[in-house]
Simulated scan of single mutants.
Amino acid sequence: MKLLFRDATGQALCPQGSVVCIGAFDGLHLGHRALVGRAVARARALGVPAVAVSFEPLPREFFAREGKPPRLMLPRAKVEGLRALGCDGVGLLRFDAKFAAMEATEFMRRVLVQRLSAREVWVGPQFRFGHARAGDLALMQTAGAALGFSAQSIEPVLLDGERVSSTRIRAALVAGDFAQAARLLGRPYAIGGHVVHGRQLGRSLGYPTANLRYRGKTPALRGIYATWVHGIAETPLPSVSSFGTRPTVNGVEPLLEAHLFDFDGDLYGRRIEVEFVAKLRDEEKFPDLPSLVAQMQRDDAWARALLNQHEPQRALA
């Protein structure tokens, strides 16, 4: 069973019952993995599907008044990650004005009971849901007893005495502390996607790049980085990557551009993952293209030197 659904209402998807976990799951960090792992284990014990329920856009994106808050992970990567963790079904519920107005009891009735026939529901610490975030675990436990399911939360996952959270990971990425981000995630931070066509300016400057779009989301980091690229060869390939809006050439949309060292090949349409190792500098606007190329040469040399001292990860799962 590999189920993906977007609607809060509709026909029953798991008539035999299910075990559900609910969360934003942005980044799929150690806390998320513990939550999903508990739900999957309980689903296997009961012989029913494990279903992860999340939202798209995330509520904090929907309610943001000025600019979209940064995201660690794109929706497709989240779905793939949840499936890799053992989820049989994934719900990316459309979070719009109608959904935001749904009362907590209505969410339980429509999504958990009618849609998923939930037997158990698992949530993380400090879980809130429903209109005005009025619902909590206590309400879910009380209502669940009448609706036919139980609800429980996992204990907080701590690292260095603090709860693991997407907020901590975003702060580590902004600070260029990729080692800390990896500890919180349980794996190196990476962004994946299919290589798309760009303006081919990099090629004309002697630095061809594999380009990934961030699909209308705000990235959690911006600048120039030493990186490994997975998905092309048996082992990751060294690279230097730019993630930003390319101000020197008047770019607008955030674009991840990875220049693979000493590589010549057609990557368009290929799915790759770019693993971030170290930040070299912030993105900046140069007065002309020769100045930009000179800096790119320095970035290239610095990234090569850093990666020569860094062992690539064999897998990013």
Rank of each mutant, 00 (worst) to 15 (best):
G244N: 03
R94D: 11
R199P: 00
V195F: 03
D88P: 02
V51L: 02
F129Y: 14
L92Q: 14
D299C: 05
H131G: 04
D300Y: 14
R6H: 15
D282A: 13
L137H: 08
R304H: 06
R215M: 13
I154D: 12
Q126Y: 15
L85N: 03
S18Q: 04
A181N: 03
L221T: 00
F55Y: 07
G269V: 03
F25A: 12
T209Y: 03
V229C: 04
G176Y: 00
S242G: 13
L267Y: 03
P156S: 13
F129P: 08
D288L: 08
L72T: 05
K279M: 13
S150L: 13
A172W: 01
P59C: 08
V113A: 10
Y214R: 13
E56M: 11
E80P: 03
F178K: 04
A84C: 08
R199C: 11
G27A: 06
L306Q: 07
R110Y: 03
A143H: 05
A64F: 11
Y207N: 00
L205C: 00
L72K: 06
A220D: 04
G231F: 02
V20Y: 09
F261L: 04
V240G: 02
R71T: 08
G244T: 01
A104Y: 07
H230A: 05
A118W: 09
F129M: 09
G192K: 04
H29R: 07
E257G: 03
Q114I: 00
A317E: 15
A64Y: 11
A64H: 08
Y189S: 04
Q309H: 14
L316D: 01
E284Y: 12
R222M: 05
P75A: 11
K279S: 09
S166R: 06
E275M: 08
D26Q: 10
D96G: 09
F62Q: 04
G27Q: 06
R65L: 14
I154L: 15
F55N: 06
A64G: 10
S239E: 01
R65T: 10
T9Q: 13
G269Y: 05
A132N: 12
P238K: 02
Q180W: 02
P236R: 08
R199T: 12
K217D: 13
W302N: 09
R33L: 07
L184F: 02
R281Q: 02
R6D: 10
V277G: 05
R110N: 08
L159T: 01
T142N: 14
D300E: 15
L92K: 03
L82M: 04
D160Q: 09
L255T: 10
T227H: 04
C21N: 07
E283C: 02
S150G: 15
Y225C: 01
E103Q: 12
D96C: 09
L289N: 07
F95W: 05
G91C: 10
T209F: 04
G47Q: 11
